[in-house]
Design a protein around this nucleic acid. Structure first.
Lengths: 236, 236
DNA sequence: CAAATAGTGTCTCTTAGACAGTATTTG
DNA sequence: CAAATACTGTCTAAGAGACACTATTTG
């Protein structure tokens, strides 16, 4: 918490006096949230959602201004729900973009976020709910407005780093999954193939078997279903 | 950048109309920066600077409100310079603390930062420049105001993680140093002893020898001086 | 049984860490 | 030369990765 009772009298733009109400007269920025909404495509790997902006003639990430009484995460949820119909997201904060002149119209700082959702959660987007949208690979996001390329870069790094050390931390799969399904998700996120047994060894101590067997229609031995190891599991 | 030309008409607290100037009428938070100012003590390892706050009767981290036209990093620099006389810092952004009710007096969000400085840069603090201050171990920071314990926790994690993989990234040492000096700094940051040869092997590919030899007054073979390996060095 | 997929035993190569040696200085 | 500190060669144990083998299912 900063020091609202210590106004700096050497700065003429700051109101005088030690009255706590004086803080009301400080100039304040608009605080925005901008979100890299990611999902996986079987073909294209990790992709980012973008919206066409008629007013500036560019593609951009979905964003909104923070309102009084809400947290940044709530602003992200509201934005994605209202603009895109996407719900049940788990936003993560990345970084504050604070160039005072990043928007020529006003003093706007933006808190960049990332949210990863299952592909089916973006199904409604094709139906014109949200104006024109597109999905692009995080490695080639195309031409984006403002500092949004930096947000995509940070989002990509954040998600890939977390998937390197944890089994599907963003719940792209349900609570139970086969190791082959898990490997498919991790390969899509990383944009890289892993050896079958290598991946199994790496994940073995981070998941636990359920004893349940996959119901398969295909040929071959059916796989065991695993779940993420809970922190409260009994120690071995 | 958020969407200032898409005001949400379903919310009565938001002004109507697509006039870009309408964004001026949105309620805006005060944006603060609060900084965990860290240094190393030979005895106590990694310590954090705290200031006594008469108005709330608690110890707190130094903080300030962001002013129009300045970046968050500049606000941190101004705060530490004006309140503590500390200069030449390299602030790193950690996280935004955004509980709408974290300060009962007003809507204040805080961008937490961490800055690491050499011990001698805090020498002036004993001279009463800045009111009452204290240094406490980051592992036992004592009773701190507001959400400042969380800032210390994040700062500690951030610094220790970066020192695990890079040689003195925060420049607690000068441009040239012996491996024993480097190990001392890393042990102070980590709060843990490393084996002499183990540490040497781990750092060997991240520093480069200068050929220069330490000027020593003490007994024993003088050590070679090393420097951080620059990214533009010739590949082997 | 052939094909397909799941799961495991084992070998090798790399690497982290410890130990003990050599090297260079002061007193 | 003894003591102290810097540096280095080598052994060992643990881990990553590749390969090949076994197991279980469908057609």
């Amino acid at each position: 918490m900063a020091d609202s009772s210590f106004p700096d009298h050497s700065d003429p733009t700051v109101p005088r006096g030690s009255d706590k109400k004086a803080s009301r007269n400080y100039p304040r920025p608009i605080v925005a949230v901008d979100t890299a909404l990611l999902t996986t495509c079987p073909k294209r790997g990790l992709v980012v959602m973008q919206m066409w902006r008629d007013d500036i003639g560019k593609w951009a990430l979905p964003g909104a201004f923070v309102r009084q009484g809400e947290t940044l995460a709530q602003a992200v949820e509201r934005c994605l729900r209202d603009k895109l119909g996407v719900q049940n997201i788990r936003p993560r904060q990345l970084h504050v973009l604070d160039d005072p002149h990043r928007d020529h119209r006003d003093w706007v700082i933006s808190v960049a976020h990332v949210a990863v959702v299952r592909p089916d959660q973006l199904e409604a987007l094709g139906c014109g709910v949200a104006g024109e949208t597109r999905l692009a690979s995080v490695d080639r996001p195309g031409d984006l407005a403002w500092d949004h390329p930096e947000i995509v870069r940070r989002a990509k790094t954040d998600v890939r780093e977390r998937y390197e050390t944890h089994p599907d931390p963003d719940r792209l799969l349900g609570p139970r999954f086969t190791l082959t399904e898990l490997r498919g998700v991790h390969e899509a996120v990383a944009g890289e193939q892993f050896g079958r047994d290598r991946f199994r060894r790496a994940m073995e101590d981070k998941v636990e078997g359920t004893g349940m067997i996959e119901e398969t229609g295909a040929r071959g031995r059916p796989a065991e279903l695993f779940r993420r190891k809970s922190l409260t599991s009994a120690a071995p």
